[in-house]
Nucleic acid binder design. Structure first.
Lengths: 169, 169
DNA sequence: GATAATTGTTATCCACCATATCAAATACCA
DNA sequence: TGGTATTTGATATGGTGGATAACAATTATC
């Protein structure tokens, strides 16, 4: 297997990985690990989520909760199954999540008149307000920092490739 | 570092998201969610790990286990703390993981002569053999499929950006 | 009208992550 | 030298996410 070394060369701004000229133990070599896309993908994802949590900390929202609020705002009149499935959340696990949001008065379950099995989900006024504030924090702090690191064009290219992987892989 | 825009152009081939003209329930709109990098990042990561597991299924290796074997091969003479920390695994959680690998005779803990507290980790012959087979599977099935989807240049650019995020964000 | 399917829910299990703590061994230092 | 602090591997434990089975209420199917 022959792998181009260009990315490895661009990736690090130092010749060797983590060249800490410390006391005794030399830094470990990542080796082929730095060429494994899944490895970088996972580490990048952890960093991104970590930063997201920091940026939106005043609102106490996790990425998953934020995605639910976004989806409820954009898709009124949907029930739990529909919202959960489009987010890749299993119905049983979505119950506790909704309990959390509802107990904070960010959304509400409404018994449907047509189908009394299902609960229509809707944002409360407070939910809409929190979502609006969250959007601003995410845009001004989180995504802005990404744009600063990568540049708008690269950020767009990255998003497009990730979306492609998520959809077609 | 400049990244080609080809991926961004290829990314969206449809105007709206998921236009399924199904029976009754129209598809939900992701809305701003599709612009959230963390969302695509997470979904892409899940897909990649899923495919990795499929490709390397005959060897029964998880991505984390594969990364440990790679690291042991590249860095002989290291102890548990060193290996775990470079992978971002906490020492307590690394114990059970090593138990699994050691019980399958893929690696071994050797009491260090210099420092009798630490366990030097090394691959067994079987571990080296499994690692070699795993590398081939990953290259020929997993990474090859990624190259097919993105193209080598885009794949390299993606890796470079993810590495940058993981290191500098 | 009997049976099947759906919805929200509960219970339960497993993997992963994080912290506190411990005994053994080593490092440090007065 | 001896006493204290630090390090290493390990255990226990709790929290969180993800997955399946099962259930009552409701609706669809035939």
């Amino acid at each position: 297997m022959s792998v181009s070394k260009t990315a490895a060369a661009e990736g690090g701004r130092m010749g060797k990985e983590g060249a800490e000229a410390g006391a005794e133990g030399l830094a470990l070599q990542l080796g082929e690990l730095s060429e494994l896309l899944g490895y970088s993908l996972k580490r990048a994802q952890l960093k991104i989520f970590e930063d997201f949590l920091r940026c939106v900390a005043p609102l106490q929202l996790t990425p998953a909760q934020f995605s639910v609020l976004l989806l409820l705002d954009r898709n009124p009149g949907r029930n739990q199954t529909e919202i959960a499935s489009t987010l890749g959340i299993l119905r049983p696990n979505f119950v506790a999540m909704l309990d959390g949001l509802e107990s904070r008065d960010l959304c509400a379950r409404i018994r449907s008149a047509n189908d009394r099995r299902s609960h229509i989900l809707e944002l409360t006024d407070k939910g809409r307000a929190v979502l609006a504030r969250a959007k601003k924090l995410v845009a001004s702090k989180h995504e802005a920092r990404l744009n600063e690191l990568l540049g708008p064009a690269n950020r767009a290219a990255l998003l497009a490739m990730l979306t492609k992987i998520a959809q077609e892989f």
